[in-house]
Design a binder for these strands. Structure first.
Length: 117
RNA sequence: AAGGUUCUUCAAGCAAUCGCUUAGGUGCCGGCCUUCCGGCGCCCGAGAGGAAAGUCCGAGCUCCACAGGACAUGACGCCGGGUAACGCCCGGGAGCCGUAAGGCUACAGAGAGUGCAACAGAGAGCAGACCGCCUGCGGCGACGCAGGUAAGGGUGAAAGGGUGGGGUAAGAGCCCACCGGGAAUGCAGCAAUGCGUUUCGCAUGGUAAACCUCGUCAGGAGCAAGGCCAAGAAGCGUGUGGAUUGUCCGUCCCAGUCACGCGGGUAGGCCGCUAGAGAUUGUCGGUGACGGCAAUCCCAGAUAGAUGAUUGCAUAAACAGAACUCGGCUUAUGAAGGGCCUUCAUU
RNA sequence: GGGCCACUAGCUCAGUAGGUAGAGCAACGCCCUUUUAAGGCGUGGGUCAUUGGUUCAAACCCAAUGUGGCUCA
């Protein structure tokens, strides 16, 4: 299976995001909060939303890219046809490495996906 | 060597793997399977900054049934130059700061007018006399009255040229010397201004980042401008008619496809959107900002927003992410190098 | 992305042709009352968002910076 992340797989409209917030199952771990909901498509979609006052634009871009990268490289472990919304809150810890983020995010995904069915 | 000052440059790179956006080429599929448009692949290139930031100025560009005048309003303000333009830059002058290198300056006008200056002080704007000093008169005296005076004291941010001498009853530009200032004038300079000469004893200070005067400039709004397509919706009320920033004149548009207010609907796509006051190199002119000429090149165009992750090269760190585009300013910030100045040491 | 506005006591706000910053509520102390509330009297508390400049003097005038908010199709 290809591990790409095209434009199609980014949730685009505000209405769809609101739908995930409303209908999705949620759980949180560390500084991440995940919403998962079923969509009526054959493929999965996702979006990363840094919380308000999350650093400056460089830090917001960085966390978005890193979370996208983690989701991309591990998406074959998830069932398809789901919408993911990841909210990132500012951390008190000065530096968390990419490996730590990957570990906690994977744990969070595995915890939440069964809830969404 | 230490400290200071100023200028310049860079914004880590390379390789491999996976992944994103996109110019070009190409294959397949679809759409009135030619042009063309869309989708999915492959190949080969390209892919954030010096500040992309703050939005403080100046422009291009777009629209406003036209932009014309007067007044208002706002900005700027030594002189000359550069520039598309500027409140920017360069050169020069003046003043101030610094031992110096060097830096800073809203740097036009207060002798056009109006205003302001709390408290203190006798007196604060064409002054004034509290303590003093001196003279005269009265008185034994302390002192009082009348006058002269502004050197000294005191108040204040500021008290009507400064220092020294002469002069005088005491004093005072009253007189003189030097410094400062005004007026006229000569020379140098495009000019700001500088250097002189003559003359005037010279009351008329501060504040224009107070109003103002003089000069120069400015129509308004901004790519969420503006245009096209698709979808959707529900109208109602008010109006010395509306547009041109404010007012007046003028001009234009006309009775709605007008303006304003309330309410309802849509928040999808395409164009604008990157070839430009462009970049690099060379050369010529200029003290310099910059300009001329020639050659070569095409160098981000996203739309919830493209640059990330891992490994290796002993190591990788600052501020920070384009959103129509340029020229500046300001602010944040890492590293490297050069020039110059001061002090100390050595030769 | 563009445009606009605000920042004064713990809170809500006054304060302008520049002259030593105030009100209400809150806090604290006292009085009154059997007690509380209310009422009365008094007290403290401010780098006037920050940093420079103009001025004799700045909350006020000017510039830069920061923070917060509103708005557009």
């Amino acid at each position: 299976m290809r591990r790409s992340l095209t434009k199609k797989q980014i949730i685009r409209s505000k209405a769809e995001i609101d739908n995930v917030f409303k209908a999705g199952k949620r759980s949180s771990l560390s500084c991440f909060k995940l919403y998962v909901a079923k969509n009526c498509l054959e493929y999965s979609r996702m979006i990363v939303i840094p919380a308000r006052h999350y650093g400056n634009s460089v830090q917001r871009n960085l966390i978005r890219r890193q979370v996208k990268e983690i989701w991309r490289t591990n998406q074959d472990k998830f069932p398809s046809g789901l919408d993911f919304v990841v909210i990132v809150y500012p951390t008190r810890k000065a530096e968390t490495t990419f490996e730590n983020k990957q570990k906690t995010l994977l744990e969070l995904f595995m915890k939440t996906i069964p809830l969404a069915g």
